[in-house]
Design a binder for these strands. Structure first.
Lengths: 173, 173
DNA sequence: GTCTATATCAAGATAGAC
DNA sequence: GTCTATCTTGATATAGAC
């Protein structure tokens, strides 16, 4: 059922995430959908929770692949965030614009960000953690809204730059 | 009329930017609103254009206040973006979530970003321009969505860091 | 130019049969 | 658990009077 909802969101955007559309996609009727989710907000909440969980998992996975040095948590975060568009990104992307307009739906997202900062900052000076975090998030969000002005070459250069900064710091010319 | 629409957007969010609400705020009737804007999308387009224009003007204003050294365009951009919440930010904030779900409305925004990058990159190495740009945009967007995990102290430290990097570059520890 | 009245529609939600 | 049918609401948009 959530899979069907995600499919709708990815395909048509979250604005057109209607109970009808989910029902059609899932091969059931509206009534069937509303048995599982008493309201549309409940459905959105579940989608948000899932996206957060996946994002967390992606970061953990990257962390497992890196040797445990200072800055590795930050580095893992960068690697997990800057990737070729993954399924979860497409879902988050479409979701964000709808979720953002409802403070109640945003609150788990806010908490997610609040908890992530200390986790990725571990063993790294504040300036470095903040800068890398903000730039990574900036790229992610700009790509989410499809307003990133960087081309493929520039993007991979940025990717490299952020990875280096995350792992060792460095000088910005 | 646009002022009324902005007032509604700021106060109740763009989701509730209805023709009724605009009419009430402007002190006219729905018919009156629709005389000026044939459709709701036309109204949104006008709001987007206005927000873009103001954003551009804010940057120009900062640029005028800085001595013309290499990196001053980037520095001016940082100063214009990182400020205590201005009226235009509140409008953009509320607008973005609605506009983002309509590619047609997003296209002027996309163009704005594309044209801004070369403007603020002038006379600055790519790495520095990209990093500062992304981090600034990251902070702006996170604050837009109220998910920034930084407190007041941290924020002003970041502000200082970005200003320094924009103006002279530097070392990230 | 601005108003009122109305058409039209899409969507969330409810109730009760099966 | 899932379906159909129906209610209700809120919003865009149109038509035509003033």
């Amino acid at each position: 059922m959530l899979d069907a909802a995600e499919a709708v969101v990815v395909e048509h955007g979250a604005v057109r995430l209607t109970l009808d559309a989910v029902a059609r996609e899932a091969g059931v009727s509206k009534g069937g959908v509303m048995y599982h989710f008493p309201s549309k907000n409940a459905l959105l909440e579940a989608l948000v929770a899932r996206a957060i969980e996946r994002s967390h998992a992606a970061r953990e996975a990257q962390l497992g692949k890196l040797p445990g040095a200072p800055g590795s948590a930050l580095h893992a975060y960068v690697r997990a965030s800057i990737n070729d568009p993954l399924h979860n990104d497409r879902v988050s992307s479409a979701l964000l614009s709808v979720v953002a307009s409802d403070p109640k739906l945003m609150s788990p997202v806010r908490e997610f960000f609040a908890q992530r900062l200390p986790a990725i900052s571990e063993g790294v000076p504040f300036d470095r953690a903040a800068l890398v975090h903000l730039a990574t998030e900036g790229l992610w969000l700009m790509e989410l809204f499809r307003v990133s002005p960087f081309n493929k070459t520039q993007r991979s250069r940025i990717k490299q730059l952020l990875a280096t900064l995350a792992a060792e710091g460095g000088t910005v010319p």
